[in-house]
Amino acid sequence: MNKNILVAFGGVSPEHEVSVLSAMQAISALEETNYSLIPLYITKSGRWLTGEYLLDLEHYQDLDELVQQAVPCTFSHNEMGKPVLLETEKQGLFSSRQTHSIYAVLPAFHGSEGENGAFQGTCDMYNLPFAGSGIFASSLGMDKVKAKEMCRAHDIPVVDSVDFYESQWEKAQDEILDEIDELGFPVIVKPVNLGSSIGVERADDRESLIEAVETAFRYDANLLVEKAVSPLMEINCSVLGDPEEAQPSVCERPLGKEETLSFEDKYQSDDGGNKGMASADRVIPADIPDELTNKIQDMALTIFKTFRAAGVARLDFLVNAETNELYFNEINTIPGSFSFYLWKESSISIEELMVELIEIARTQHQRKIGRVRSYETNLLSQKAVQGIKGLKNKES
């Protein structure tokens, strides 16, 4: 069997470029394996493209040329009914459309449609094995408000917050500001459905809060304003596995120029950002007490399983540096660089991590298709159809 791995990345998201970096890291890691690698690049306008030209990171410096060289594609079925990647344009006068069987899909999206469950739902509709979390965990992890509500329901500590939509802000700005005042400044303003610290700003008073809110609305119509933890120490931990069996990585303490990490801290360090999240400054393992490390790892596992996540995820925590009070911040169901830099501290290479993600995807898929997925009855039988006709006659 030809083991074609479809690496899917890009997408309509402010985190588009970060996704390309993660995908190139995954492709590089899998080059020496027995898998065949096929890129599925989704442009910033939503076009699906494939082709070998997409396998070279340097080609992304000229996106117009990239689009010209790549081949439009889509999911389809072959003559035997098996899902395939279909190249939708012929490459030459006498060539035919090519199809590629798919062993598994490796999503490398960050943010928006790629990480929020929409693409995962497409894979489900085509009955394709895909790495990482399913629709439920993906959509929950992308929505910071609902993720916090889930944690509160399971007695997992989160910081106090206020959330609102742009329409509510326009109608009741003063009331919302009064509610935020009750949290106490400083506060952190966040788009609800984005990652990579895009649109995230700290506000120390009403004036800077209003400015931060207006900026964040450029990225999302739903915002979250949280009470700032101060003095803040951010600690992250990755989890690998599925809802039934999973393991935590070592912890890391990211370093940034400010108390709250920015996009630049994460992706634009001295190496130019070519290594994605792997280039960010951090302390690994985190220089924190063993008791706090164990508590974070246990909480990370609990949240991972509560959210029904799968594959690899990174869970970010906020810690009061004086009291060691711990709060869940967010879960990244497709973490930047797949958090390989945390797993190599556990003697798991990026190649081994990618292979494990693919095999978890295959196992999860086999579990799903091994169950009864249809019910052998025909509701469109003669009797049922007659009943519908009778109803129609009554209405007329």
Results as ranks from 00 to 15, higher is better:
125 M>A: 11
178 D>Q: 13
190 K>W: 03
345 E>D: 13
25 Q>I: 10
24 M>T: 00
368 K>W: 14
51 G>E: 08
26 A>T: 15
153 A>W: 02
276 G>A: 03
297 Q>E: 14
154 H>P: 07
290 D>E: 14
6 L>S: 08
40 L>E: 09
234 E>W: 03
283 V>M: 11
123 C>V: 08
367 R>N: 15
142 M>W: 05
234 E>D: 12
208 S>E: 15
92 G>M: 06
386 Q>R: 11
382 Q>S: 11
58 E>L: 10
354 M>P: 07
122 T>V: 15
250 V>C: 02
387 G>C: 06
263 F>A: 05
314 R>I: 00
223 L>E: 04
248 P>V: 12
75 F>I: 08
280 A>S: 12
4 N>Y: 07
263 F>W: 12
392 K>T: 14
126 Y>C: 00
33 T>Q: 01
388 I>E: 13
286 A>I: 03
22 S>G: 08
377 T>H: 13
236 N>M: 01
135 I>K: 02
395 E>D: 13
262 S>P: 08
69 Q>R: 15
92 G>R: 08
165 Y>L: 12
59 H>W: 06
149 E>M: 15
304 F>D: 14
289 P>T: 12
377 T>S: 13
362 R>V: 15
150 M>P: 02
377 T>G: 08
339 S>G: 06
46 G>E: 02
40 L>I: 10
271 D>E: 11
148 K>N: 15
116 N>K: 11
216 A>T: 07
36 S>N: 13
124 D>T: 09
111 G>L: 09
71 V>S: 11
329 N>L: 00
213 V>T: 10
262 S>R: 10
51 G>S: 09
339 S>Q: 02
284 I>D: 04
243 P>T: 05
290 D>H: 07
35 Y>W: 07
341 Y>I: 09
143 D>A: 10
206 R>L: 11
203 A>S: 09
73 C>E: 05
337 S>L: 07
33 T>G: 02
339 S>R: 02
94 F>Q: 00
358 I>F: 05
391 L>P: 00
221 A>N: 14
135 I>Y: 00
196 S>K: 04
86 L>I: 08
49 L>N: 06
363 T>W: 02
361 A>M: 05
234 E>F: 06
360 I>V: 09
382 Q>N: 10
233 M>H: 01
23 A>V: 09
179 E>S: 14
384 A>T: 06
287 D>G: 10
300 A>L: 11
297 Q>R: 14
53 Y>G: 02
300 A>R: 11
147 A>I: 11
338 F>N: 00
75 F>L: 15
305 K>G: 12
172 A>Y: 10
2 N>H: 12
5 I>Q: 05
9 F>H: 03
5 I>C: 06
237 C>H: 04
271 D>S: 14
341 Y>T: 07
66 L>D: 03
324 N>Q: 14
35 Y>N: 06
44 K>W: 12
18 V>S: 00
337 S>G: 06
51 G>W: 05
291 E>N: 09
8 A>C: 15
4 N>F: 05
358 I>Q: 00
97 R>P: 01
118 A>L: 13
343 W>P: 02
256 G>Y: 03
73 C>R: 04
286 A>Y: 05
66 L>M: 13
163 D>Y: 15
64 D>N: 14
220 D>Y: 04
26 A>Y: 10
340 F>Q: 08
332 N>Q: 01
264 E>W: 09
254 P>V: 11
120 Q>H: 03
139 S>T: 13
333 T>N: 08
315 L>N: 08
310 A>H: 10
112 S>T: 15
10 G>S: 01
387 G>A: 06
164 F>T: 07
42 I>D: 01
174 D>T: 11
